[in-house]
Amino acid sequence: MTKCFAPFLSGRTALVTGGGGPLGRAFSAALAGAGARVVLVGRNAEALASGASLVEEAGGTARTARCDVSDPASVAALAAELAGEDISVLVNNAGVAGPVKPLVDIEPGEWDDVFAANVRGVYLVCRAFLPAMITAGRGDIVNVASVSGKRPLLNRTPYTASKMALIGLTRTLAGEVGPLGISVNTLSPGPVRGPRMARNFRLEAELTGSTVEGAERAFASRSALGRLVEQPEVAQALLAVLAMPGLCGADIDLSAGMIAPA
C-alpha cells in the first residue's frame, strides 16, 4: 500500500472501476492508505474479492460490486446497489487494450468494443454518480487515460483514439461541473509494467517477428528514463492528483518521459 500521503481522504468513499485488475487494486490500496473507504467495481467477482482483501489486510475498508461499465442497464443497477454510499471520489480505471494490428485489419466490432469500454463506460459511470456529487457540491473524478492517446503507437489505433477521446471528455466535463465544486482530471500513465503490457509485447513480437524482450526494449527506449512505469508509481500519482485542490481539467502524464518516435 502507498504510505507516502497522510490520510487526507478520511471520511470519503472512493469508487474504482476496473477494481479487480492490477492497476485497480493498486489504486484501491493507495486510496485506502489515504483514509478512504473503497468500492471496487468490475466484472470478475473473484478478482474484486482479491483486491478487497488486499485493502482490508492493509487496514482499509472495502466493498465490491459487479458491473459491466459499457452496459447502461448494468451501470444503472450499480448506482441502485450503491445508493447508500456517499461516493465523492470516482476513479474511472476500467478499460480494454483492444487489438494489436494495422487499422485496415481491424474489424468494426473490435473498434466498437474498445470505445464501449474506454469511452462509453466513463460517460455512463459519470452520468450515474455525478448527480449526487452535484447535490453535495463537491467531488473528484479522475479518468485514467494514457500517454498513448497523445503520441503515435503503431497498430493500436482504436486504443489511442479512445484515450484521446477520454481526454476531451474530461476537459469538457471539467468545464461543466467545475463551477459546481467538482474537479475532473485525467491521469495518463505511460507503459505500466503488468499483464496488459506483457500481452501487448507478445502480440507486437508476433506481428513484427521480433522477440518479446526486444519489443519491450524498443518500447521502453522511447522514454527519457528508458524503462516502464511501475504500478505503485501510478497509484502515488493518483493520490497526488487528488491532493491538489486547484487541479481541474488537467491531464497528468506519468510516462517515464515517453516521447514520440522520430
Rank of each mutant, 00 (worst) to 15 (best):
G209Q: 01
F8C: 13
T13S: 06
G95Q: 07
G60H: 02
E233R: 14
T13R: 12
A205L: 05
T170F: 09
A97E: 14
S10N: 07
V89H: 05
G246V: 10
S210F: 00
I141F: 10
V122C: 10
L153C: 13
G20Y: 02
I252Q: 09
L187R: 07
G181M: 13
A47K: 15
L82I: 06
E85S: 05
V144D: 05
E81T: 13
L154K: 14
G246L: 13
C4A: 14
L166E: 14
L130C: 09
G19Q: 06
F5V: 08
P189N: 10
V212T: 10
E57H: 12
E233K: 13
P72N: 08
R127V: 02
A97D: 15
A94T: 04
N155P: 00
V234H: 01
A161W: 03
V142D: 01
M164L: 15
T61W: 09
A128K: 10
A97I: 09
V192H: 02
A76C: 04
L228R: 09
S50W: 07
K3E: 14
G60R: 03
V147G: 13
A161R: 06
G168A: 13
E216R: 14
F219M: 15
A94H: 04
A224L: 11
G109D: 07
A205D: 02
E56N: 08
V144C: 11
S88Y: 02
E230K: 06
F201V: 07
S255P: 01
L166D: 07
V55N: 02
I141S: 10
R222M: 14
S188P: 02
N200V: 15
W111T: 12
L203W: 03
E57F: 00
A218M: 05
G178D: 09
A77M: 05
S183P: 00
S162K: 08
L166S: 10
L124T: 02
F115A: 15
L54C: 07
E213I: 01
A36K: 05
G175H: 14
S53W: 00
A76E: 14
L78P: 00
N93G: 03
G181E: 12
A243E: 12
I87V: 15
